[in-house]
């Protein structure tokens, strides 16, 4: 009546355990050296918005020094959360307020400024809504996106600055949607869901097909990008050496400029002997 299902089921059970073993070995091998089999890498907790500049910089650093650099990307809150777990060498959030939070938690050994970002308006290709003045952002039928001031640095900086000018309430009232990250705000303009968004100039540079409008009212809405060496760095000297490379006028700064950062902190030329 019941046939003989014992063997197939036993085979399936044993087979699944064997498969688990094989998969575990494959994953263990993958987890070992990763993409860098030769030397222990520096681990950087890096805001995803800074990926293009840092990826290119890290590639150059590995080529010149042989030291690989690995990244854990996320938004600024996530990289901050990762940095306070007591592992990792460097922290690079999208703006310095997160470095201050990390300092308050006692995980930062030192921090150096890299660049400054400024709020600009990102508009559809060719700026079809003819946004040239701040009041153009207050047009009733304009679909305007912003990053949430409570979740993203650009939103907070824009709100705080415009409040000092007495212009925030009007912009807030005409904002169609708040996004959780500045990238989402920019992407909404790219796909046409919104007509315009307030974003960092360095983020806007990643959308070469869209129009960028600088407004005097937003010129004071700025943030600094800082690279912090963590107390948990396995080799603090190696971490500091990478920081010098990122700051070097003829190395990291070249990549940051190419990625759209116009306002860079003055840095010395790279000296590989130091």
């Amino acid at each position: 009546m019941f046939g003989n299902p014992r063997r197939p089921l036993l085979a399936a059970a044993l087979g699944s355990l064997a498969a688990l073993g094989v998969l575990a070995i494959l994953l263990y091998r993958d987890a070992g050296p990763g993409l860098h089999p030769n030397r222990p890498p520096l681990l950087v907790y890096c805001a995803a918005a800074l990926k293009p500049a840092m990826h290119a910089t890290a590639a150059g650093y590995e080529k010149e020094t042989g030291t690989p650099v690995e990244f854990t990307f996320g938004n600024s809150e996530q990289v901050l959360a990762a940095a306070v777990t007591g592992r990792g060498d460097l922290l690079l959030p999208a703006d310095d307020s997160y470095v201050r939070l990390a300092e308050a938690k006692g995980v930062v050994a030192e921090a150096v400024p890299l660049a400054r970002m400024r709020a600009v308006v990102l508009a559809r290709p060719g700026n079809p809504r003819s946004i040239t003045r701040f009041d153009d952002l207050l047009a009733p039928d304009l679909k305007l996106g912003q990053a949430n001031p409570d979740a993203a640095a650009i939103g907070k900086v824009t709100r705080d600055h415009l409040r000092t000018l007495g212009r925030w309430d009007a912009l807030h009232a005409n904002t169609t949607v708040y996004h959780t990250t500045v990238a989402e705000a920019a992407n909404a303009v790219k796909v046409g869901s919104n007509d315009a968004a307030v974003v960092w100039d360095a983020v806007a540079a990643q959308y070469p097909d869209l129009a960028v409008v600088r407004l005097p009212e937003l010129d004071g809405a700025t943030a600094r990008v800082e690279l912090a060496v963590l107390k948990s760095a396995a080799d603090p000297d190696a971490a500091r050496r990478f920081v010098r490379y990122v700051r070097a006028a003829d190395r990291g700064q070249t990549q940051f400029r190419a990625a759209g950062f116009a306002d860079l902190e003055p840095g010395p030329v790279w000296d590989s002997g130091r």
């Binding site: 993409l35 681990l43 995803a48 990926k51 690995e70 996320g74 938004n75 990762a82």
Partner: peptide, 22 residues
């Protein structure tokens, strides 16, 4: 798990990373 390329980045994380840079 974070988003460490080559170590903990899975396909949905890769989609997120690409979208984050436009």
């Amino acid at each position: 798990a974070g988003a460490t390329p080559g170590k903990t980045v899975v396909l949905p994380t890769a989609v997120f990373l690409e979208a984050q840079v436009g």
